[in-house]
Design a protein around this nucleic acid. Structure first.
Lengths: 233, 233
DNA sequence: GATTTAAAATTGGTTAACCAAACTGGTTTG
DNA sequence: CAAACCAGTTTGGTTAACCAATTTTAAATC
């Protein structure tokens, strides 16, 4: 997902090449779901690359759920069908790095959902954790300190309270990159931080009151300035 | 993201343990953003685990954008702040596997966005690729064959046309698991497939006509049965 | 001829030795 | 005195040898 430094890109290029070759092999040998991939040693021989490179390529395919490695047994093709396998690998190879705009756009989308889900599903324990992060944020801002981290942790607490493990995972994936970009572009200045306390509190109250509509509305308001900023960058 | 087989879980447990220890080390030594983590050898010594385990743990932290490894130089803590680092690592360690319901819920959310974005941003090349996947789907269904894969590839083509690289990546991550669950639970039967042709075509036309509202409406309709199914599982 | 069993080969995972780039400190040089 | 340089050390990355579990093969037994 992150490809920034040159050495990494080079490394990634080799990995992608191997993934492409594995795809070709699947097609050429008519390997079907459930079939076993040739062993890592055989592949590294065939492709004339190190076994480590093959292992990493396989691990990436495993991350996307396309194959599954069984210790002392082999690597098996998952049951998603040849067509989907080809299409998805093709897409993976062509994936480009996420830009800031798409990150923010995605974050807003995810959070307008998590806040609604949190309002309906939140447990008392969720509420307690949200309160903690909210207080930490307040304290920092009132001390005039930078509070980007505490800001985002409050939002992550909402994601956790949403009870949707997939969205929670996705939020965790994009948040560090969001924070780095925020600090890079100085998105949050002091004035917005003071306003942020009020907005965060309102969101918290709406979730506490289990009012999804209001929670979403408050979140939307909270994002309005960010939204505009994002589209002017 | 995927933790299914026992050996993998065990492996994962060790990795998480190491990640926790790295977090403790960051706190104990007051390591700050930009600081260098102790070398892999030192960590593997200190934690009494193999260097490979340490490397994998670091790689996971790198995936989430929390650290960055520089060849022949060291692993550096990313500039997201100590507080966020602690919070996010904590969340990562407690991440649970995505369940089918949360997968579908997330997919619907993402796709109701991608379809709107695709309607406004799609290029002619995007349109061409969507048409191809749509035709492949039609052919399969009209031959009475199973077309789950072609179905999903059409949706991935929309995601690509959305021009949002983040959402595109996220869609690619969840799609294989969606397909597997679909085939496992036999979500799509023949009747729905025939209906699917019509719905897919309508979505395609709306995107071609660059009508975001209509595109979203058609997608929503397309998802209505899936939505109900998801909540009855 | 079918079943059991044991040994040999195969597999992904692990470990440790090795490599080249990069950093470090002191020395030389202008 | 500062800049250039050079050996020695440290670093993440790479390679190859090794391990234990599994699978395969074929021999042994009934």
């Amino acid at each position: 997902m992150k490809l920034e430094i040159y050495t990494k890109n080079e490394h990634q290029a080799i990995q992608n090449e191997i993934i492409g070759k594995i795809r070709d092999l699947i097609n050429y040998k008519n390997l079907e779901p459930g079939d076993k991939l040739p062993s890592e040693r055989m592949l590294s021989d065939k492709f004339e690359v190190s076994r480590n490179n093959v292992r990493e390529a396989i691990r990436k395919l495993e991350f996307y759920g396309l194959v599954k490695s069984m210790p002392q047994s082999g690597t098996f093709i998952e049951d998603i069908g040849v067509t989907a396998m080809n299409g998805i690998i093709e897409d993976i190879l062509r994936l480009e790095d996420p830009d800031f705009k798409s990150l923010v756009e995605t974050r807003i989308l995810l959070e307008l959902k998590t806040v609604r889900l949190a309002a309906t599903r939140r447990t008392d324990e969720d509420l307690k954790q949200m309160k903690e992060t909210l207080d930490a944020y307040k304290t920092k801002v009132l001390n005039g300190e930078d509070a980007v981290q505490e800001d985002l942790l409050f939002h992550l607490a909402i994601a956790k309270a949403s009870g949707n493990s997939t969205i929670n995972t996705l939020m965790l994936m994009i948040t560090p990159e969001i924070i780095m970009n925020f600090e890079k572009f100085h998105v949050c200045d002091k004035n917005q931080a003071m306003l942020g306390i009020e907005e965060h509190t309102e969101i918290y109250k709406a979730i506490k009151a289990q009012n999804p509509q209001k929670a979403k509305q408050k979140m939307k308001k909270h994002f309005s300035s960010l939204y505009q900023y994002c589209y002017n960058i």
